[in-house]
Nucleic acid binder design. Structure first.
Length: 552
DNA sequence: ATAGGGTTAG
């Protein structure tokens, strides 16, 4: 073992190691301090191995500090196996501190159960020798471990009980871990109870609870807490802004962001910028979006892949695909998210062929798509008439990338077939679906019936929907809408005015020369509606001319 | 000598 470890070094290190060993120039204590300081200085893996060898050679395995630092260093490099080996070997009796380190290390991996297993072992040994007693750190780690696995809520509750019995519930970090546990499992009431009973709270306590309310749809409560909390930091702002975005309250998100900027002590972090860019994208607020882009450049904000993704998405959704491409081209490390936002953006702009080319490049780069990438890709096929390619991707997605088609992929397929005029195939595909088709699918099919003038099939479809009873009134009204039968739509909507249907109609925004224009589905409220309609008719005419041209 | 809270893509 020792030999193996020594052989790993270059000859130079090897010599130095042995000259150290024979010199006895350094007293033992100084050596310990020296090694410890080296470990605390973010050593490379190679350096860690050397230090480890020194610890073996000099028999320093009983020095807790040193062993702890060694375990930490291995953890920092993701070498959990090596860390575990060290833990198992040294020292003969583990103090709580070392147990904590190894428990925490496992809680951060996907083997969270292992940290609970270690905790149980610790309790057993504690019963035998009464040596290592779990402390507030131990509980913080295992409660956090429980929040990371969907199956571990009950385990977390058991920890809560122990915490109360042992009196660790007075500790802020333990309390925060508990609040966060209940928030993760959407148990807002329990989270609130822990919060209320904590003897002292800090920013993290407040932020966790705000997140809980935001996740549970209680934005007003989240807002109240946010205003009431004694002090805020970037993370609290991020949680509040993301809460608004999550509830489509994009204007509130921007307002909140501006409030944040008004505070000179507060600098937006990555999470804030990503959320705000998403709000800009949804609102078509290109100016605010550009401002953030400038801000990122000016402050030399690190351009992570998340930031690039958000910028690409924002530009694409605000109609500036060229800018989106520019950001993409300048992105150094492209990951699945950057590729996906670029592919989806191109596809949204009808640039299906380019999007497919990108997809090929992405695969060549060795990046596997996920279900969202495939939605973009299938849409790209649909928008560029690449029917064969689309069908082949749909049929092979399971085999090639282990992604089983979900509702939205069926939606793309049906859209693809419908646009290509293969209406009967599309209807057949709907009937083979295992899940209930949503109204997006029916609308795709029906609007294609309209453009292809197939009234007979449209009627059969509406009959089918009525018979299978899926979707209800709103769906039916949408079906009429997709056929342009606005009178029927109005009739259905008005007859149900007091019913449960409180869904807001589709709404879109676009900013032109600094003015944001808002459009509701089928409204006629815009001051320039006449001009818009005329232009739209012209566009439609030219599209149908192009189609005729294609068919020749 | 080791804690606890954050974002995005159709």
């Amino acid at each position: 073992m020792l030999y193996k470890r020594l052989r790993m070094f270059g000859s130079c290190d090897y010599l130095r190691l042995w000259s150290d060993f024979f010199s006895f120039a350094q007293p033992m204590n100084q050596l310990k301090i020296h090694l410890y300081n080296q470990l605390k200085h973010k050593p490379s893996l190679n350096q860690i191995n050397q230090i480890h060898a020194q610890i073996i050679v000099r028999s320093l395995g009983q020095t807790n500090n040193l062993i702890g630092a060694l375990i930490q260093s291995y953890n920092a490099h993701g070498k959990l196996k090596s860390a575990t080996k060290v833990f198992n070997k040294y020292p003969s009796q583990h103090p709580t501190f070392l147990w904590n380190l190894i428990i925490q290390a496992y809680s951060k991996t996907s083997f969270t159960e292992q940290s609970l297993h270690l905790f149980k072992q610790m309790l057993l040994i504690a019963g035998l020798h009464s040596s290592p007693v779990p402390d507030d750190y131990t509980f913080t780690f295992i409660i956090t471990a429980c929040s990371r696995q969907r199956t571990l809520l009950d385990c977390g509750k058991n920890c809560h009980t122990m915490v109360i019995k042992l009196g660790f519930d007075k500790n802020v970090c333990v309390g925060n871990a508990l609040v966060s546990l209940y928030v993760v499992f959407s148990k807002t009431v329990s989270a609130r109870k822990v919060f209320d009973e904590m003897p002292e709270r800090d920013i993290i306590t407040w932020t966790s609870l705000i997140k809980g309310y935001a996740m549970g749809g209680k934005i007003a409560e989240a807002e109240q807490l946010f205003v009431k909390m004694p002090e805020r930091n970037e993370v609290s702002w991020a949680v509040m802004i993301a809460g608004y975005v999550g509830h489509k309250m994009y204007n509130d998100a921007l307002r909140c962001f501006n409030d944040m900027l008004a505070d000179d002590n507060m600098k937006p972090n990555e999470a804030v910028l990503v959320s705000v860019l998403s709000a800009c994208a949804h609102l078509g607020q290109i100016n605010q979006g550009k401002w953030i882009h400038f801000y990122i450049d000016r402050t030399r904000f690190p351009k992570s892949s998340n930031i690039s993704t958000a910028l690409i998405d924002m530009y694409a959704k605000c109609g500036k695909i060229e800018y989106a491409k520019q950001v993409f081209d300048r992105t150094e490390k492209r990951d699945l998210l950057t590729w996906t936002s670029m592919i989806s953006g191109l596809s949204m702009h009808g640039l299906g062929k380019e999007a497919l080319k990108m997809f090929t490049e992405m695969l060549a780069d060795g990046i596997k798509p996920d279900n969202i990438t495939l939605v973009g890709v299938l849409n790209a096929c649909s928008h560029s008439g690449q029917v064969k390619e689309g069908i082949s991707i749909f049929n092979n997605m399971e085999k090639l990338w282990r992604i089983s088609p979900k509702l939205e992929h069926f939606g793309c397929l049906i859209d693809l077939l419908s646009r290509a005029g293969r209406l009967e195939d599309a209807f057949k595909a709907v009937k083979t679906m295992e899940m209930e088709p949503d109204d997006v699918i029916w609308r795709a099919l029906l609007s294609a019936c309209r453009t292809h003038g197939n009234v007979g099939l449209a009627e059969r479809i509406i009959e089918h929907v009525k018979k299978t009873g899926g979707g209800g009134r709103l769906l039916l009204s949408n079906l009429h809408a997709s056929f342009g039968q606005w009178d029927n739509v109005r009739r259905i909507r008005e007859s149900n005015i007091q019913k449960e249907d409180d869904s807001t109609p589709g709404c879109s925004y676009i900013e032109i020369n600094g003015v944001v224009h808002e459009f509701l589905a089928a409204d006629k409220l815009h001051p320039q509606i006449m001009e818009i309609t005329l232009k739209l008719n012209e566009v439609m005419k030219r599209i149908s001319l192009d189609e005729d041209f294609d068919n020749m």
